[in-house]
Write a protein that binds this DNA or RNA. Structure first.
Lengths: 247, 247
DNA sequence: AAGTGGTCTAGACCACTAT
DNA sequence: TAGTGGTCTAGACCACTTG
């Protein structure tokens, strides 16, 4: 921070507060300020950037609205640690026997290092001959399988996962990405569709072939907006529910 | 506006800008400022409320973020006219023969004035013996039925629709509510589920009985947050697609 | 008590729209 | 040219957290 001036003038035509926002996300993307840590105080930042506190606050307001930062009065402003492995609960409502919401566990069934589909390859911005790591997972409530998942990762960023023993993958992938590969998921886009269970799905999820299933395709990206994971999740449509509020 | 002081001090503990926001939505809900019209200028409002322009702008920022107001530089700040009859396109992707996205037309099949289900009655906050207007609609692309809809409205607010000839209902309900009944839909909550087509659905939508269908339940409310419409829409799951961006 | 973010002021000047 | 919202300043004081 100290040694690095605000050289970045990406676009003088943009308002100052947008330039500030861009510079702050750049520093986060480059790891200068890490998730879970506090960024410098408003006073320090406004002095460094040579803007009034109101202008700096407006830049931070945008990042808070985007979910990149969180503010806590009296404590500081922090880079948000994204924890949306639970995001599927926005779609699938799982309950235990006593009606409580529960987190499913996960089990990696298979892993291969192979050439990805063309669609996956282009989505992840991979070179024509680059290999991908492909994981097949099942997620369970107790012993009951509820979700079936396929995950593709570019090998270049996730080399450590190519050799990790399958039983050492935990329930959550994103902490693993961060710990073993230094890859932090900052945002994601999900597309929902309805399909019918294939024979494999049916066997895995204990439903009838042809029964309706929800397909959630997710592309997850880092702070710089680069896609780093492609994932598809399938679950029985009977467990599906989603709520939207319209402005 | 001139005759009406800012008597409302709903909660002195709240920041001024939140009090301003509440007072502005109150005026909109009461019809003092109507959808499509401009509200007073920032200079007038900040003088009237006796706050600095920055404070007033923060209140308006909130309402813009909520989708209640829109600002246009050089022109003014306007009460947004909600137009989300097209919101189903967030769920169902319809295309014409040449691949263009199209708006479906609508046809009211049936209307009855009857006691609503208990669930509908309580959701709409209706008295125990109050009657509701129930409409059955089908929505079509060309001649092809794609969505089947049931709508319940409290009779007290929508009397005019109890007698309107069925062929005079247009394609869009909300402009009708506003024009004939003075009811403006300002927000809505939708819940999605997946089901299987009943015999009626199958016949109406030209799909096989038991085929997967998407059910969208919508509760629409006015500016004051009072629910005024309950609606359920059913469509073939094959036409369903939804995209979410996660922070 | 010191340090943080949260609220608010009283302006200035700029960019855009309309006439 | 007049009027609108958009940006920005240079502070002040308050509410909350931590030592």
């Amino acid at each position: 921070m100290d040694t690095n001036t605000f050289a970045a003038k990406p676009d003088d035509r943009l308002p100052r507060y947008q330039q500030l926002r861009d510079d702050i996300v750049r520093r986060i993307a480059q790891g200068e300020w890490a998730p879970g840590q506090a960024i410098p105080t408003e006073a320090e930042l406004s002095q460094f950037y040579e803007v009034a506190t109101g202008t700096l606050r407006k830049a931070i307001d945008l990042l808070v609205a985007d979910g990149v930062l969180t503010r806590t009065q009296g404590k500081g402003t922090f880079v948000r640690r994204p924890r949306f492995d639970a995001s599927l609960f926005r779609f699938f409502r799982f309950k235990s026997a006593d009606g409580q919401a529960v987190q499913p566990t996960a089990k990696v069934l298979d892993r291969e290092v192979a050439k990805p589909d063309e669609a996956v390859r282009t989505t992840l911005g991979m070179k024509p001959n680059e290999k991908a790591i492909h994981l097949s997972r099942v997620r369970l409530i107790g012993a009951e399988p509820v979700l079936s998942e396929d995950i593709w990762l570019p090998r270049s960023r996730f080399e450590a996962l190519a050799t990790l023993p399958l039983d050492e993958f935990g329930d959550l992938m994103y902490p693993l990405y961060e710990r073993l590969c230094g890859q932090i998921v900052a945002s994601a886009t999900e597309i929902l569709n309805v399909g019918q269970a294939t024979g494999d799905d049916a066997a895995l999820l204990h439903i009838a072939p042809g029964a309706p299933v929800i397909l959630v395709q997710r592309v997850a990206s880092d702070f710089a907006g680069t896609p780093i994971e492609w994932r598809i999740t399938r679950g029985a449509a009977t467990t599906f529910q989603y709520q939207v509020d319209i402005r």
